[in-house]
C-alpha cells in the first residue's frame, strides 16, 4: 500500500501548471481514441467497424466474446457472406450468414435472407413483423476479419459496470499521478 500514499502525496504536491499538462495529456488520449474510431468508420464505410459477438447463433464459427471487423464496400451482397444487420424495433444488431439473394434488374436493389449457422431455421422469425427480406439499408456491414476472445472485455464491462468504474478510476489515477 506504500505506493497509494505516495500517489496521494504526489497529488498534494502538484502545481497548477503540472495539473494542466496532465489534463491536456488525458484529453489527447481520449481524442486520439476518438480519431482512430472515426477514422476506421471512414476507411471501412461501416457505421460500427468492430462488433462483438453476443450470441451463440453462429457457433462453432463465432462464439460469444469474439470480435468481428466489418467492411461496407460498394460490391453487392452475395450468399455466404456474414453480415451485420439491424432490424426495426430491435436495438442490438445481429450477425448472421446470407443464404438467399435476389437482385432487381432495373433498380439493382437486393432482397436478402439470412440464417445463423447454428440455428435450425432462417431469420424470418427475428425480422420485424411481416418482414420477409432484408434490404441494403438494414445492413451495417459484412464481416471480413475475426479475432477471438477479445470482446469479453466489453461484455464484462457492460454486464458488471462496477468493474468499468474501478478500471476507469485506476487509469485516471495513474495518468494524474504519473510524472511525465
Amino acid at each position: 500500500m506504500g505506493w497509494v500514499s505516495e500517489s496521494l502525496d504526489s497529488i498534494r504536491s502538484l502545481q497548477i501548471r503540472h495539473v494542466l499538462t496532465q489534463v491536456v495529456s488525458l484529453g489527447m488520449i481520449v481524442t486520439s481514441a476518438l480519431i482512430i474510431w472515426k477514422g476506421l468508420m471512414c476507411v471501412t464505410g461501416s457505421e460500427s467497424p468492430v462488433v462483438v459477438v453476443l450470441s451463440g447463433s453462429m457457433e462453432p464459427g463465432f462464439k460469444r466474446g469474439d470480435i468481428l471487423f466489418l467492411h461496407m464496400s460498394k460490391a453487392p451482397i452475395r450468399a455466404g457472406e456474414i453480415v451485420v444487420f439491424n432490424v426495426d424495433g430491435r436495438e442490438i444488431p445481429i450477425v448472421h450468414r446470407v443464404i438467399k439473394v435476389h437482385e432487381r434488374k432495373d433498380t439493382k436493389e437486393v432482397d436478402v435472407l439470412t440464417k445463423g449457422d447454428n440455428n435450425f431455421g432462417d431469420d424470418r422469425l427475428l425480422y420485424a413483423h411481416g418482414q420477409l427480406w432484408l434490404q441494403q439499408h438494414h445492413i451495417m456491414g459484412r464481416a471480413v476479419g475475426f479475432l477471438p476472445y477479445v470482446g469479453w472485455v466489453t461484455i464484462i464491462m457492460t454486464e458488471k459496470p462496477f468493474i468499468k468504474y474501478i478500471l476507469i478510476g485506476a487509469l485516471g489515477l495513474l495518468v494524474i499521478t504519473s510524472k511525465e
Binding site: P60, G80, H102
Partner: peptide, 30 residues
C-alpha cells in the same frame, strides 16, 4: 483455418431479377 463452411447455391436470372442466388444445402466442416 478453424472450420470451413461449404454450401451449394442455385444461381439463375429471371425477367424481374438480374441475379438470384439460393442456398440449397450447407455443411460445417471442422
Amino acid at each position: 483455418t478453424k472450420q470451413v463452411f461449404v454450401f451449394i447455391a442455385a444461381e439463375y436470372e429471371t425477367e424481374k431479377n438480374a441475379f438470384n442466388q439460393i442456398s440449397l444445402w450447407d455443411l460445417v466442416i471442422s
